[in-house]
Amino acid sequence: MTRVFPVVLWLSLSLALSFLVLPLVALFVRITPADLLAALGSPEARAALRVSLVTSLTAHLFVLAIGTPAAYLLATRPFRGRALAIAFVELPLILPPAVAGIGLLAAFGRQGLLGEELAAFGVSLPFTQAAVVMAVVFVASPFYLRQAVAAFEAVDRELIDAARTLGASPAGTFARVALPLASGGLLAGSALAWARGLGEFGATIMFAGSLGGVTETLPLAIYSELDRNFDAAIAIGALLVCASAAVLLTAKLLPRWIRSSPTSPLHSATSI
């Protein structure tokens, strides 16, 4: 028995790894790097790349600008309903993207909750680039918020207090102490959220459709190229694999690169 158990463990890991890695390898062995670059040069692929970059980066700006202060509040102030607020923030993590898409339509679509109000201002969101941005924000922001709350919670409260007694306003304390000390975690969360947004498919296709050059992002392009040009679909897939790998590596290494010494003076005091 003592011999069998380690074998079972190693066998399980090997099976899991092969299954997870094989599809990725398949993307790269089917076509040569030269063909890959050529396929990416096609007008369809370039349009999709442009749409993806514009929408995911715009969405990311919203996620950072609104998510960072919101996460700071959740991490530092105990208020009524905080646990509920955190639950709502995390819900999109496990929500099926199709549900997110139909929900966005039900809220902002022409027949939706706010449809009439939006129409009164001459705004129609569905099937526009703004709709892509909204879908990406909806599914990607929880990845950033969760990490950001954890990063702010890890900042020693006493440092915040010290900043206040030294004359820094709450906003000054946030900018000069909390933000730099949490930056490692914030950047890691930011990378994960951007990667999730870049790969967004389900909510986007339902709320924004797949209009070439307008709302067709890279993942949507893979789907529409599938029938027309399988190699092009593969090439876009390979590109997304590279982007994801880069992001994962960044997210894992960033907290170590930003070698913020432990924020708790208790910990650092024991190191002498």
């Binding site: 020693d156 206040r164 004359g167 000054g172 913020s260 003076p265």
Partner: peptide, 30 residues
């Protein structure tokens, strides 16, 4: 508010800002 009281608070575990040099720690309040 705490930041307007002008107290010099020396915390038990000192609460020095780990991301700032000694000089910038001391310069934090003035």
């Amino acid at each position: 508010a705490a930041e307007r009281r002008r107290v010099g608070y020396v915390f038990q575990h000192y609460a020095l800002f780990p991301h700032l040099s000694v000089e910038r720690n001391v310069a934090f309040g003035g």
